[in-house]
Each structure stands twice: as C-alpha cells, then as structure tokens.
Design a protein around this nucleic acid. Sequence first.
DNA 1: ATTATGACCCGAT
DNA 2: AATCGGGCCATAA
Length: 103
Amino acid sequence: MKRSFTELVYKVVKSIPAGKVSTYKSVAKYAGAPGAYRAVGTVMRKNPDIKNIPCHRVVGSDGRMHGYAFGEGLSTKIRKLKNEGIVFEGDKISLQRFELKEM
DNA sequence: ATTATGACCCGAT
DNA sequence: AATCGGGCCATAA
C-alpha cells in the first residue's frame, strides 16, 4: 500500500494504549498534518478493521463523543471506554486525566 | 477536474 | 453557558 495520510492516522490510533484517549486534533498533529483534524474524522468513519484500530479512543477536543460507526454507535463507544477505565462526567470525559500526551 | 460530505474546531454572538 | 457560522482537509462520487 502507498504511504498516505490515512495510513499514518491508523498507525497513530493503533498506538493509543487502553485507558487513554486522544483527540482528532492531536491525532492529526501526530500524523504530520496539524490542520487535518477534520479529515481524521473522515478516516475514522471508514475504519477498515475495528479489530486492530481502537478508534473508540479518539474523542473531540472538549472531551465529548462525536460518533462511532460500529455496534450501537456512541453507546458502544462509551461502553468500551468505560470498560477500559475512562470515567464519564455527564456526556464528556476529562481530557486532563485521560488524554495521551506522549507517544 | 469539480463538487459534496463528514466521527472537527474555534471565534463571535 | 449555549448556539451559530465559517473555515479546513482528505475522500468518495
């Protein structure tokens, strides 16, 4: 496969450990395209293998959920995150506590 | 090549 | 604090 923005994004997302999350914006930055956070969402939606790409660990910059293309959507995403130890405060989570800052 | 779309984000109201 | 509008970027058609 040809090296592409998409591949880089998947690679970054795969590196997010359980119990931690990252934002679309941050992922874009790590993928080398600081301003392509919008595209990151597009890529996530077309996630080819949910088995190896933990796309549920990617949330909005304000710690809020945006979408999830598998299972029952956001419900499934939230369930998975909680299952990994993420704590929800209402409909959002604390990026202060769970956002992955380093790779 | 052009147009439309979306799991985004930020500044202004 | 909540809502609105505009801008951004890679893909799909």
